[in-house]
């Protein structure tokens, strides 16, 4: 059976580690970690090209990222035809109301302040998108 993924965009090693630890507690998905916005878009587009994007159960997106920031990544996803409906949850440590508004306007499942907890992830995690 083909495995599904949690796609994590996070530039900080500690944060990536802590989020991965929580993911592992909550579900069995494989974790893809990319370290900046550009890399995220490149990989997502490749996955859109070969259809494997359907295996992404949730994209966890940090906002403060090198090269392209989280909001730019989110905008790019929402403008791309196959990726448009990708379930995204934002992870952030800053409490910028404007950022939150923008993200919600672009369509997200949740706006989560770090650190991520298992309960929060459980609540936000959508059903797997590939049939068992």
């Amino acid at each position: 059976m083909a495995k599904s993924y949690i796609f994590l965009v996070e530039d900080n090693w500690d944060d990536a580690f802590l989020v991965s630890r929580i993911i592992e507690k909550v579900c069995e998905e494989r974790i893809i970690v990319v370290r900046d916005g550009e890399e995220a878009i490149e990989l997502l587009e490749r996955m859109a090209g070969d259809g494997s994007y359907r295996r992404i159960r949730l994209l966890l997106l940090d906002l403060k990222l090198p090269k392209l920031n989280g909001i730019e990544v989110l905008q790019s996803i929402r403008q791309s035809h196959p990726l448009r409906d990708l379930p995204v949850a934002v992870l952030t440590s800053s409490d910028n109301d404007l950022d939150q508004e923008r993200c919600r306007a672009l369509g997200i499942l949740d706006y989560i302040f770090k650190p991520l907890t298992a309960e929060r992830l459980q609540r936000v995690l959508p059903p797997s998108r590939i049939p068992e």
Binding site: N12, D14, L18, S93, D95, K114
Partner: peptide, 10 residues
């Protein structure tokens, strides 16, 4: 806030 959140996570 970012390192503090990290600390909280740990």
């Amino acid at each position: 806030r970012a390192p503090v959140a990290r600390l909280e996570g740990y």
